[in-house]
Deep mutational scan, measured.
Amino acid sequence: MAAGGDHGSPDSYRSPLASRYASPEMCFVFSDRYKFRTWRQLWLWLAEAEQTLGLPITDEQIQEMKSNLENIDFKMAAEEEKRLRHDVMAHVHTFGHCCPKAAGIIHLGATSCYVGDNTDLIILRNALDLLLPKLARVISRLADFAKERASLPTLGFTHFQPAQLTTVGKRCCLWIQDLCMDLQNLKRVRDDLRFRGVKGTTGTQASFLQLFEGDDHKVEQLDKMVTEKAGFKRAFIITGQTYTRKVDIEVLSVLASLGASVHKICTDIRLLANLKEMEEPFEKQQIGSSAMPYKRNPMRSERCCSLARHLMTLVMDPLQTASVQWFERTLDDSANRRICLAEAFLTADTILNTLQNISEGLVVYPKVIERRIRQELPFMATENIIMAMVKAGGSRQDCHEKIRVLSQQAASVVKQEGGDNDLIERIQVDAYFSPIHSQLDHLLDPSSFTGRASQQVQRFLEEEVYPLLKPYESVMKVKAELCL
């Protein structure tokens, strides 16, 4: 049975990233139509530049190519590739079939990587351009969430054990800070992308030097003109047959890092959902379990974690691919890159769409948070109580021993009897502590235990987050809708 299948058929496997999760716009960027249309555009740009620099290419040939950029006979191309065992030459023939007058000058002087690699770089750039505003929107939604809850005390956790208090907004800023680093890295790697350009079979530009009869300047002009037509500021000066596969490492490393950030955020949300302090959106008709109707599973956060793990592992592909590119190139890269580049971007696209949807509907339960604080705060307040007693004339050592005994009794009630923490009640009825009984409410005010959390939130948002989001103001209103 021949390899390949009808990918629109229910009898043929289709990647869930495309069929179930990723956005239509990201799927289109990695589609065959987008790819092969870009090949034709690159052939047109090459012909236009070659004509401008004096090669015998007519206006009629150029116009014929322009008129057929979208006229792609995919069936013919597939048949040609089956016959020739070469995808680029299959599309040269297919393009030439609908451009008979231009057929002889299509791909003039070029090698397969002229269309293959340059198209990949265009796709990487455009895919990054799709991700950047999506990530900015996630940051914006979380920034709104953090600002609104900047002063809401909550129990902090280290080692997932109760620690000092923080605020809900401050905790959210930990998430935002990681995503801001990801946004900066995505922008950097996007701006650092260079075009492969017009380089020939081993990167020496020998074929173009021959076409222009040894004119170095025209060869350099050709490279520059096509690079500018493709919208790049610069091209690699040095290439082998391909652009260095280190570029793929750079791009997928940034995406993998984004995956790590999203995994951490969504894990926190899942843990908070278990504590009943916070939940992701839950639709009115949504079913959490087929057997347990009360369940409210954090399905979206779980999906993000599941896909983020996949995204983090994909960076190993370009690392290994770059390491086995012998001399000017081997074909070890080809099949692998067809999979890992598309999957990385479709996965990143999915987790950003999902995280935006989550961040637009996060639900906080202040009463649950308050109750958990009441359970733990008495123990945390013991040092403040000791200091207040010393100020009232008591002995630190005597007070410490009193607190120690009462704390152990209260802990026994919590752990052995399943009761509430009654340390404060014990202190309130103990005559030894009568000098500070009137101060206990103040000493137990949760806001006095959150330090500068709310001020940190305000400063972080104003100095770091809002300036970073400013270039994306025009796209901030787009909502994230999930079908599944």
Rank of each mutant, 00 (worst) to 15 (best):
V115T: 07
A291F: 00
K199S: 14
D332N: 02
R234I: 06
Q409A: 07
P16G: 08
P435C: 13
S257R: 10
I358K: 04
H159T: 00
P435D: 08
W39C: 15
Y114F: 06
Q356E: 13
E370R: 12
L121C: 14
T94E: 14
S412H: 13
Q458K: 13
L55V: 06
L271Y: 00
A291L: 04
T111C: 00
A77T: 08
E50I: 01
R396N: 04
V364D: 14
T450M: 04
G104S: 10
E213T: 13
S257V: 09
N384C: 09
I123P: 04
S438Q: 14
C173F: 04
L53D: 00
A2W: 12
L484P: 10
P378E: 07
V226F: 01
G418Y: 00
H91A: 09
E417L: 08
P24E: 14
I265S: 10
K82M: 09
C399Q: 08
K367I: 07
E250F: 07
I403L: 09
L128D: 08
V251L: 15
F30V: 12
L314S: 07
K66A: 07
F460I: 11
P10T: 14
S407N: 05
M292W: 04
L84W: 12
C99R: 03
A431W: 03
H217V: 12
V405I: 15
I373Y: 03
F95Y: 05
R329S: 01
V29E: 00
G104H: 12
I176N: 06
Y243L: 11
K66W: 09
L406G: 05
A2E: 13
L130T: 13
M299L: 05
S434W: 11
M316T: 12
R20P: 03
P100W: 10
T267R: 01
D32C: 07
K218R: 11
S290F: 03
N336M: 11
M316R: 06
N185F: 06
H107S: 02
D192H: 05
A410P: 03
L108N: 09
E417T: 07
A392H: 08
M26W: 05
A103K: 10
K35I: 09
C99T: 02
L468C: 15
Q458L: 14
C399G: 08
E50Q: 02
T321D: 02
I62R: 02
R14Q: 13
S31P: 03
Q455C: 09
L108H: 07
Q177A: 14
A49H: 07
K35Q: 10
F282Q: 00
L209G: 09
T167H: 15
S140E: 15
L135T: 12
Q177C: 06
L130Q: 06
A235T: 09
W326I: 05
S9Q: 14
Q325V: 11
A127Y: 03
S112G: 11
P446T: 12
A480C: 15
I403N: 04
P378H: 03
D144I: 12
D420N: 10
G419W: 14
G361A: 14
R452I: 10
A344Y: 04
A103P: 05
L341W: 14
A22R: 10
K479L: 15
D32E: 09
C340Y: 15
I249V: 12
Y34D: 01
K187A: 15
K101W: 15
D73N: 03
L440D: 01
G116V: 07
G200C: 07
E25Q: 09
E81G: 03
S112N: 00
V92E: 12
T227H: 13
C113R: 03
N421K: 03
